[in-house]
Amino acid sequence: MSKETKGLIYQLVAIAAAFAALVIWLVTADLTDTERQTLDPGTIWKYTQEHLQITLVSAVIVLLIAIPLGILLTRPSLRKAAPAVRAVANFGQAAPAIGVIVLLAFWLGFGPKTAVVSLVIYAILPVLSNTIVGLQQVDERLVEAGRGIGMSQMAVLFKVELPLAVPVMLSGIRTALVLLVGTATLATFINGGGLGILITTGVNLNLNVVLIAGSLMVALLALTVDWIGRLVEQLARPKGLS
């Protein structure tokens, strides 16, 4: 069993154990009525679904924007624009997420849609820059070899460059997903839904159990997404690369 496979198994076991501990704690804990109401499994499931929905929709939009953009920015004709675009993307990530979300809400209105827009701005950088780096680190001579044996530019991109960039790109996508799961917590501030509501409720009503349960749920969700990401990275790594 390889080191990576072992790591995957440990991570999964740890997530499952932590989740089980959380459930046992909530079942056995001495909860007030308000707490019990807020922590109703059906409600939590609904929040989790909302949370995942915001995350996934943002992730899909991020991929649809960042990957083609990254590819374009590594083509010879547009290569020069790469630093400028990366600077803009950097700006998106450097700005405090909570600030971006709230400011955008004033401009675009409150609700899940705005949450998605701000999450996209926030998570584009890792995918974009890993797409660029992944494509840039492909040996120039392999590209030339491909062209030299008569492959078109498109064929070289899809059969040589992208497959070889996949490991780096996937790790960027995983980073973005984890960021998104965490940041989607903030959606609740602009009526975007998600697990963040448990945390804000916990803080506002001074219900520590709710606060802790909400935070743990988000953390476990992020770890689970990270685990899925790692699994995909393992499976999608091109054979022949070590």
């Binding site: 001579r141 070899a145 008569g150 497959p163």
Partner: peptide, 30 residues
């Protein structure tokens, strides 16, 4: 140009083999 290059063999230093393809798939490209 692409069609021309398919009719001309091209060898570079260290072979320029695609690392994610087997020997057979590399040879089978053209």
């Amino acid at each position: 140009g692409d069609e021309l290059r398919r009719r001309i063999g091209y060898v570079i230093q260290a072979g320029g083999l695609f690392p994610h393809m087997t020997v057979a798939s590399n040879i089978a490209m053209v």
